[in-house]
Design a protein around this nucleic acid. Structure first.
Length: 299
DNA sequence: TCACGTCAAGCAGAT
DNA sequence: ATCTGCTTGACGTGA
């Protein structure tokens, strides 16, 4: 088991997702920003390595406007060496990474422009992981998308669009259950048709499920991961007691976390902690497991 | 230096 | 009808 946090390190002085307004786009600005973001990504990974955090979600903001027509810089070529160096570090330290394109990425949209743009956006994410030279256990996770007043049709549309994607996109893509449109069971149906692995989001499942036994559904979901996909990925968070339903906690709730660990003690997976304070909670979780009977699960 | 209106992109649920 | 949340708040103008 590796423990991770998403995108952003709140203690480092650098920013790995620096951006700018579309209106202020210039080639110079773009190049300087990507250069900064890549340097900061490496710094963040170095920080993680020092702390023993071996799983990390790379921000989609790494290359701003990468999939937008305004960007005509051949950034994969310009930054090839820098990507390669970061990738070498990730591989040397046996880290795992993932990416999570934004909520505008909708393969099952009814609008052609939307799903076409979404494919471009996924291609950008694939380019990042490919440039880093990472194998296909480094995943890109997306949600199924909208319902558009007809879930059956929308689910089918997702499958059909997925099937048309090129192999290099298919190898990276995984789906994640969400909290109001497509639950774990829906994802399993899609996985049966597409062979896509499923990222199990514990908190989303808690908010939207079909009353399945947690242990059972996890077992079934983990079967969607094949050897070349790496071990399953789990997204973990829990409810902020003081905020409305669906709000992630500020800091990790170790009691709740421990319950999940106990339920899943027989299986191995990497866990992404979607907690507001990010690395802080990841460190707490590491310390907690390190002093528990599950310490041998960490590597 | 700071406050705050706005920012590439879509959808669903809450109010 | 309008607001909020989601991958991740952060840019940038005006004072």
């Amino acid at each position: 088991m590796k423990i991770g946090y998403p995108c952003l390190n709140l203690t480092l002085p650098c920013q790995n997702s620096q951006t700018f307004r579309l209106a202020s786009y210039s080639q110079k600005r773009f190049l300087a920003t990507v250069n900064n973001n890549l340097d900061c990504l490496l710094e963040t990974l170095q920080y993680n390595r020092e702390k023993g955090i071996l799983f990390f979600r790379i921000t989609s903001g790494l290359v701003p406007f990468a999939s937008h027509p305004v960007c005509r810089v051949d950034w994969p070529v310009v930054f090839r060496d820098k990507f390669k160096a970061i990738g070498r570090f990730i591989k040397k330290e046996k880290m795992r990474t993932s990416m999570h394109p934004g909520h505008f990425t909708l393969l099952n949209s009814l609008r052609t422009t939307v799903w076409r743009r979404s494919i471009k956006e996924i291609e950008y994410h694939v380019d990042v992981l490919d440039l880093l030279g990472l194998d296909n256990s480094h995943k890109i996770q997306i949600h199924v998308g909208g319902v558009y007043n007809d879930k059956e049709e929308s689910l089918k549309r997702f499958i059909e669009t997925y099937k048309k994607l090129s192999p290099k996109l298919k190898k990276r893509l995984v789906i994640e259950n969400d909290e109001n449109s497509y639950n774990a069971d829906d994802c399993l149906r899609i996985s049966k048709a597409t062979k896509m692995p499923i990222v199990f989001d514990v908190f989303h499942h808690q908010l939207y499920n079909q009353g399945e036994d947690l242990k059972e559904i996890i077992k079934e979901i983990f079967l969607t991961w094949r050897k070349k996909d790496g071990i399953p990925i789990v997204d973990y968070s829990s409810q902020d007691a003081n905020k409305k339903r669906g709000a992630h906690t500020e800091g990790i709730d170790l009691e709740n976390f421990n319950k999940f660990l106990e339920i899943t003690q027989d299986v191995d997976y990497d866990i992404m902690l979607e907690i507001k304070d990010k690395a802080k909670s990841a460190l707490e979780a590491l310390g907690f497991i390190g002093h528990s009977p599950l310490a041998s699960k960490l590597y």
